[in-house]
């Protein structure tokens, strides 16, 4: 069942020199129980595109398109409906664990306040749930942690607390922006197992943003690759990572050490740097860095079209396509 359908999402952010297009027409859908992976270079608009879904962008942001959840468009929810949706239907774990917790409120307060608002839960019920969650994200001595403050924890522990906060109201969709980046491998594996269990048992859908293709291949069902504010390729994880069709996906995989790499293939950095949102090239934004670029690539922006049952590609040349 499709939980969330994003259609032609566009975001323009105000800057000192006028609005700049950050997200430039993104479509995807997320199914119940699915882990939907999002990858792409830094600055490609991954975070901005998910903040837009929760109406959490800075003031002055212009958002177009639709994000349908439960028959309603998230992008046009009024304040009251928005507040009820946030945290309860869709929850979010932010990229930076050091700044995303309130420094002056106890962990317990931050874990329970929204449970009490959304579910009208008593203090005791909320606390019991908080302690369970702290156990689930493997915080040692949850009872004591409940009464502690963020500065008493390491970055990794804070990230786990942030995950516990996001899961506290049992959301249907979890947006996790680099949730495991600050964690060491064993804890990371624990968190991924927890997410995996929640999606199997409760049908939790996860939008997982990560640079780590290892994490991606171990948990994501589906991956979308972002480049310069657009999705350039998407498909089932295993297929996409083993047989990338977009030159950028290929380059991204080659640039990262990962378990799926073919024997003998070497690591190659992608030549050049990603375009800034202000100076995006015409046509396909990747063409200046693309080994297969032709003249036609400069002329029109390629649209994301199906190339097989399950795969979408935004490259009409398709140099890596099946032969």
């Amino acid at each position: 069942m499709t939980l969330l359908r994003v259609e032609d999402l566009r975001v323009r952010l105000p800057t000192s020199s006028g609005p700049v297009t950050i997200v430039d027409g993104v479509d995807y859908q997320v199914e119940q129980g699915q882990v939907f992976g999002v990858a792409g270079e830094s600055g490609s608009g991954k975070t901005i595109s998910v903040l837009a879904l929760m109406q959490l962008l800075p003031q002055g942001a212009q958002v177009d398109g639709r994000a349908l959840y439960d028959g309603r468009d998230l992008l046009s929810l009024g304040p009251r409906a928005l507040q009820q949706m946030r945290g309860r239907d869709i929850a979010m774990v932010f990229q930076d664990p050091l700044t995303s917790l309130h420094p002056m409120l106890s962990i317990g307060k931050q874990l329970t306040e929204h449970v009490r608002v959304h579910e009208d839960a008593s203090r005791d019920v909320a606390k019991r749930r908080a302690i369970e969650l702290l156990e689930e994200v493997r915080i040692p001595d949850p009872e004591q942690a409940f009464h502690s403050f963020p500065h008493q924890f390491s970055g990794g522990m804070r990230q786990r607390v942030a995950i516990a906060i996001a899961l506290a109201c049992r959301p249907k969709v979890l947006i996790a922006d680099e949730p495991t980046t600050a964690l060491d491998v064993t804890v990371q594996a624990g968190i991924l197992r927890l997410l995996d269990r929640l999606r199997r048992e409760n049908g939790l859908a996860v939008i997982l943003i990560t640079h780590d293709l290892g994490v991606m291949s171990s948990i994501a069902d589906h991956v979308s690759i972002f480049y310069a504010g657009r999705i350039v390729e998407s498909g089932p994880t295993r297929e996409l990572l083993t047989k990338p069709r977009h030159p950028y996906t290929r380059a991204l995989i080659d640039a990262l050490p990962h378990p799926e790499a073919e024997e003998g293939s070497e690591l190659v950095a992608i030549g050049g740097s990603p375009p800034t949102p202000r100076a995006r090239p015409d046509g396909c934004a990747f063409h200046p860095r693309c080994a297969y670029a032709r003249e036609s690539c400069e002329l029109s922006v390629p649209s994301l079209v199906p190339v097989s049952d399950s795969r979408l590609l935004a490259c009409p040349i398709d140099p890596l396509g099946p032969r």
Binding site: M85, R86, G87, H118, C169
Partner: peptide
Amino acid sequence: DYVRSARAKGMPG
């Protein structure tokens, strides 16, 4: 960021 977190949790304005 922590104010954004509070909004993201659905705390009333």
